[in-house]
Design a protein around this nucleic acid. Sequence first.
DNA 1: GCACATGTCTAGAACGTTCTAGGAAAGTGT
DNA 2: ACACTTTCCTAGAACGTTCTAGACATGTGC
Lengths: 350, 350
Amino acid sequence: MTVSPPPRPAKRPTLADVARASGVSVALASIVMRGAEGASETSRQRVKAAAAQLGYRPDSRARSLRSHRSRTIGLALALGEPLHAELADALYAEADARGYQLLLGATGAHHNGQRAMDTLVDAGVEAIISISSSLSSAQLGQITTRVPVLSLLRRYRNHRSVLTDEAAGIEQLVTHLVDGGHHRLLHLDGGHAVAADQRRVAFERAVAQAGDAVSGLVLPAGADESSAATVLGTYLTQTAAASRATAVLAFNDRAALGARQAIIDSGLHIPGDIALTGFDDSEFARLAHVDLTSVRQDVAALAASAIAGVLATLDPDTKDDTSLAIFHAPHLVVRGSSREKKPPHRGIDP
Amino acid sequence: MTVSPPPRPAKRPTLADVARASGVSVALASIVMRGAEGASETSRQRVKAAAAQLGYRPDSRARSLRSHRSRTIGLALALGEPLHAELADALYAEADARGYQLLLGATGAHHNGQRAMDTLVDAGVEAIISISSSLSSAQLGQITTRVPVLSLLRRYRNHRSVLTDEAAGIEQLVTHLVDGGHHRLLHLDGGHAVAADQRRVAFERAVAQAGDAVSGLVLPAGADESSAATVLGTYLTQTAAASRATAVLAFNDRAALGARQAIIDSGLHIPGDIALTGFDDSEFARLAHVDLTSVRQDVAALAASAIAGVLATLDPDTKDDTSLAIFHAPHLVVRGSSREKKPPHRGIDP
DNA sequence: GCACATGTCTAGAACGTTCTAGGAAAGTGT
DNA sequence: ACACTTTCCTAGAACGTTCTAGACATGTGC
């Protein structure tokens, strides 16, 4: 069997080609292609037909060079974070609906956030949405002189931010657990992770508000499986069963997975001996075998707000929405890992 | 405390500004900025100083519009895939070392691969690397008429591909398990995932080559946690202990995680009752509590080959490397989930 | 019939860069 | 002094698009 070599990239058709093919001026072809008004229906059809026939695609470099409008938004995120992936998906949908394209830049071990942003700016994005940015406020300010930036999931005092109301999520968890008869709660802290401080503080406040009968303990851990497993494992072996916490609130789902392992390894049962909750409602929290109670961030709403917020700064027409921070309430997703002991059979996810 | 409003993006300095500030022509400033020859050392210094002072950054849209060189490579990948994240990281490092930038496009539920590619092409990338592309050969051919495309992890007959030798990995796994005394092997198939067919076929061949004493069973599952958990769970409850497989080869690490859950929930122990292996050696495979034997794809080598391959098609200077497919050998990483039963204590990772 | 608005179209400048072609100045060999 | 090369520099076109300004019909009110 013969294998044909990869074809050589051919010259891409230009607006001039389309204009020539349809017998109109370049300017008119331009009007038609960007759907502006000022062209008759008949020429509109002819130009579009010619464009389709030639396989014409407008060159966004030239377009944005001239018009300062690329209809492209940059998205800076961390690869490998499930929540970021979910958000990106929702952002794509939202941007799409408004006729915008998304261009991604990743932050990671071999490429810091600054570089990612620069690449996006160079590529001509009109604005940038940065998820859980790792940049300092000063760095972000630097970039803002080039292009508007909106921070998603992380709050910056001087920049537009779209956020989840972490405290509300924690409160819902605590209420749910206390209602379920738990009086000794344990929070595995997220360490240096972005929302860790807020969740810890919210936990402490929620416990205080739950009354004297309820006590709360915070153990410093981290945002991933291993530290949570280690910390909780140590706690469980060193604490007498009588004074042990009956419910564990892990910083997020990944930490909860580690905690789950530690609990099982200690010979304890979930939720019979200890209830367990996570945060983020990742894909694996929903697995039948993990069945983890978690807090679902409102991904669709966050994405919609982010896109809307960015477009508002771009479009001077829109009412001047000066809101710097927009919070979205998350909602509790109760699953088997925290159900009350009374009903013996497993429930069904809503 | 007063909060300053986000600063308005200012006009970005242009090459003309730099030229004016340093008292030379735009053309000369251009020569200096791109490091071309034909400028004296003194003017080189003056221009560079002025550029630095103004905070000038070349506009890559204009640059690539004129020169057809953006020094940018597009990368199409699936978000949320740990291996893709690892590869992206390595690709960033590699591209960086050669003075290229990376621009990402994601494929996902709300945005197909075609759109992602189009966005990248519109943005002016010189070439595209597509990881585990979901595109048909015809679609890829279509894009290749615009810009060279290299497929990473998935093979296309008519296009440059950089691949892992899947069969070699599976063979290593089977050999390792058979050496460990396992005679009944079970492979959880990856369903429609990209490399699923190759891994299944390689499994069947390796089992056949292992002799009559060794038998292999293939169960259709999928590339993620849930299907693997369900399929294996059903198998374990329906199969008598005596005839049960003693080792499970999951399609990849994610599937292995699901399989692991099913095994534990069935009251069985790893590796005592059943050995378990994954594929990809993701971050979580290395976690102390998961401790999963896996096959590590040579991420660094794959990334280096991909970048080199792409640049070779771009640069006519390079020797005409007509190799359409480059394979890299993966290597086995043995961990606790498949260790022989004899030594009771846990080993240490190499 | 005039003035004016409206609808459709086009020429040519502009965006910020690179490239081509060539000019000016200085050195080199005879 | 001449022809020639080399080094450094610059004007102006070009890339593919959008934008501005205006041309040319055609209609509309009076």
